[in-house]
Nucleic acid binder design. Sequence first.
DNA 1: GTTAGCATGTAAGGAGTTACATGATTTT
DNA 2: AAAATCATGTAACTCCTTACATGCTAAC
Lengths: 203, 203
Amino acid sequence: MSSRRPGVLELAVLGILHEAPMHGYELRKRLNSVLGMFRAFGYGSLYPCLKELLRQGLIAEETRPGAKPLAGRKSKIVYRLTAEGKERLQDLLGQAGPAAWEDDGFGVHFAFFGMTEADIRMRILEGRRSRLEERLDGVRAAMSRTRERLDAYTLELQRHGLESVEREVRWLNELIASERKSGPATRWDAEGHEEGSPGGRIG
Amino acid sequence: MSSRRPGVLELAVLGILHEAPMHGYELRKRLNSVLGMFRAFGYGSLYPCLKELLRQGLIAEETRPGAKPLAGRKSKIVYRLTAEGKERLQDLLGQAGPAAWEDDGFGVHFAFFGMTEADIRMRILEGRRSRLEERLDGVRAAMSRTRERLDAYTLELQRHGLESVEREVRWLNELIASERKSGPATRWDAEGHEEGSPGGRIG
DNA sequence: GTTAGCATGTAAGGAGTTACATGATTTT
DNA sequence: AAAATCATGTAACTCCTTACATGCTAAC
């Protein structure tokens, strides 16, 4: 409840721990393999985050039955999501705001779309598309305000940037169309996850 | 001399002020039009940065001859690069290290390639390409370690991420080839910039 | 004369990052 | 027994963001 601002890492950790309990080192690898293209976190980021989540009661240290009562504990510590943690995760995934479609957050939110309700998924996809289209408009406007004469490199950067963003918009369009075909009310996971996910691509 | 870590904003401000003196508000617009696709800075970031650069003597308030001696100064303040500022800019642009090819820095450094020496340009382009290829290897390796079964959305994110990065690598390849054709020792600008930049694309 | 845009700032704080430090376990 | 890699942490710091606050200037 205490108003700590999310940040990508918290969501990512909760999301991954929802799949399975894990210890820090493993978690980091999984983290960077899921989000590898967008971000990479170090231990210096992860462990403080785990500590904080623990303090908030969103995760707990697993106590395996036949475990070792290490006194001078410097052994594996397996974390699992608590009930509050699951709640918090669902809460974060249920919010379709800027945090979910800005550059920082989008990747992580998308990665956990499998646990996200269909209407939220749609709102986030559309939100991101609008955001990118605003950006396109902005840059295009700036370019036609031909006052600003840019050198060849800056121009090339613009060109490449535009192309990349246009490409992402097309991708989003496909995803949105795909989501619409599947109709609303599709949500595969959330609690007990069975294996029956859609076929070829996404839709 | 004091070891303050660069940060994108400092370089961007110095680079833009090198083109022409400007006041804060204008600077910010120019900033966001040049880097619009990658980042957007607010006044809350810009003004403190200007203040700091001023303190370091890298920029100075322009004193136009027929200017207004505003006492309760809340009027335009035009900043220009000092000699130290130009030196610092050349210094920053002369460094071909991680700061120049990681996600954060690359865009800005590239935007000012017009003021960067040919060999540094090459090192930065190649540095970024290596960095991206590492990332591709990492993610591909993680994917073939098929232990990790990912749901459809995570997979789609991976696919799109891979494609984007591959695309950027191809772009870098073209640029690198282009740079090689122009031969080394090309540097258009730095001080008095004449208009004779290359033709069609970049090379 | 009031909305809209130009123009300049500050205080508080957040989300990580960097650099360092150390122990445990497996491989060679 | 040395080297590599697994595993966990902390102190200090940084770059930037958010939210707020204010005044000037042009357009309608």
